[in-house]
Nucleic acid binder design. Structure first.
Lengths: 338, 338
DNA sequence: ATGAAAGCGCTAACAC
DNA sequence: GTGTTAGCGCTTTCAT
């Protein structure tokens, strides 16, 4: 079943009448080895078709040059942008990424954690499920001094390193924006979740509404996607009085909502203003273009990876909360009332 | 710098006065080991905080339970859907995914290939760059009998296993659709690329136009995104006579084109029909909704992974071309003329 | 500048 | 049903 014999450093050593240690050093470009020897080793390794065995090396060095990433899902614009950013940084640093999805299941997340742990990743980057924001299964990493950076969906406890937006503030700004456009009856559309992402947005919304003396209510959906966005619109259609401004916790649900409002004959922005969250590319595609809160996934991914490498390289475990910039992007969906 | 001593099977063996092999077998749930012994081992391993060392095991077994994935980019709807499908299958089979992006650069792709090779992935799934469809740097895998499945962007040569759409046929159908709606002057918008994806779509378009006796031309853009889609629209605005039907090689460029046509006062579908490719979620969001060719990424990813595991498990290297279904999804952007 | 030797933690062939 | 033994391929002291 197994392939032909693999070429090892011993084969090179034998061929060149050197020792394995010299070959090992030479292959790593160690300057202590005579330049000529290094060249001969390089040539010979090429000739024999040698390839390093990362495992043997890992086993010896107790280091894998691999970082694990656990995300709720891969097929979201925001998350795949984050991953793209992480991959760039990792690859620049000579690290590999092993990626797993939790599918928003805490159980699957725990399994992924175990796999990553057994695979001895040198560090971990995690965005939690919406279902559980205080998992205990990452403790083992911390115990073994394997650094973890959380991003976007971060744990409830404070003693962690994480990269995320100030969701409270971002939601506050988004809501203020609606208020500035003249909305007094406000609606927030989100999912019930203890996760910082949704809970903080919810609180930011409430606070902004309260501070401005507006009438605020919140509609909780079972999920945030096109379909549920449409359902929300149907519910809004039946409300009386209707809200004047809506802040939806993500763009895709906002888009679904907008489409359905249109079908119900409720005009955006004439009858109702709407703003989403994430600034996905779809914002520019819907009609009218959707206002949103911008939050760059690629940057978040890069920052998370950068911080993780700092922790790994400097053996530095100081907890740190890195805040990603957000800004309200005003588009037509919220630009009429003055 | 290094952590406290790791617990090994030897520690468990010593504690239980067993041999390492028994412990090893017990941990794997090998039924040849006495049930009671297995339980004791499980308990003890729990108690001592043991974790398997995947490398030591890999080194010994010459198997990594890891598959490598190289894609042009991570942050595209289609590719991230594919990855999601692959991850599901891999995870079900007890495999990890290590993922790298080529950023459409053949050089980076070659580097990724080397990394994957040195990391001894058990199999490889690749979607090629648009820049090079006959790379030679994957040869080493085949030589070592590491199976490769290509998907979407496949190599020019025939002796490979791959999963992709019949792009020729799909483009033929899309073009026929425009023709059936009454278009005689047709335009195809794409990028210059030897890649099967774009070249085949181009040929399918030409063939359909020719078979129906239509006037066909092709506009080559430097890339296919929102911006270039808008540029294309500007060029179309200056054409005389204007094309009646446009087939764009991806949805995002089609959407950009549509938006800009609207700004130029050219109505879709009244003045011009348009159809994209991929059936991205954005198709349902633009106004009017964009017709497209549907091609399920998640399925493609799952099929690629399934086939790869077949090859790995059965040591079966028969080349096989798996065709993914495509279908024309008719939406408003191409539904008026009769 | 190079070599000898030990061992990272696990598995599997072979004994008993 | 369990133990013995011999590596997997590499890195890293410690010598020389």
């Amino acid at each position: 079943m197994n392939d032909e014999k693999e070429v090892t450093i011993y084969d090179i050593a034998r061929e060149l009448k050197l020792s394995a240690s010299t070959v090992s050093r030479a292959l790593k470009g160690n300057p202590i080895i005579n330049y000529k020897t290094r060249q001969k080793v390089a040539e010979c390794s090429e000739k024999l078709g040698y390839r390093t065995n990362a495992f043997a090396s890992n086993l010896r060095r107790k280091k894998t040059n691999t970082i694990g990433v656990i995300v709720p899902r891969l097929d979201s614009h925001f998350l795949s942008s984050c991953l793209a950013g992480m991959e760039e940084v990792a690859s620049t640093n000579g690290y590999n990424l092993i990626i797993a999805q939790s599918h928003e299941s805490s159980k699957k997340e725990a399994e992924n954690a175990v796999t990553m742990f057994n695979n001895r990743v040198d560090g971990l980057i995690v965005s939690l499920t919406a279902e559980n924001n205080q998992p205990d299964y990452f403790r083992r990493f911390t115990e073994k001094h394997v650094p973890i950076v959380y991003f976007d969906r971060i744990p409830a406890k404070e003693d962690v390193t994480c990269v995320c937006a100030n969701n409270f503030e971002a939601a506050y700004k988004a809501t203020q924006h609606l208020i500035a456009k003249g909305c007094r009856r406000l609606l927030h559309i989100t999912i019930p979740s203890a996760s910082n992402v949704y809970a903080d947005r919810c609180q930011g919304f409430d606070a902004a509404a309260k501070d401005a003396g507006c009438i605020a209510s919140t509609l909780f959906l079972p999920a945030l996607n096109m379909e549920t966005g449409r359902d929300a619109a149907n519910q809004i259609g039946k409300m009386s009085p209707r809200p004047e401004g809506i802040f939806v916790a993500n763009d895709i649900a906002a888009a679904g909502c907008m489409l359905q409002l249109e079908e119900l004959g409720i005009a955006v922005p004439n009858d109702i203003l709407i703003i989403g969250f994430n600034n996905d590319p779809i914002c520019m595609l819907v009609n009218p273009p959707l206002s949103s809160v911008s939050y760059c996934g690629r940057d978040a991914g890069m920052m998370a990876a950068d911080r993780l490498f700092e922790m790994i390289d400097n053996y530095d475990f100081a907890f740190q909360k890195i805040i990603i910039d957000t800004s309200v992007i005003e588009r037509e969906s919220s630009l009429i009332k003055q």
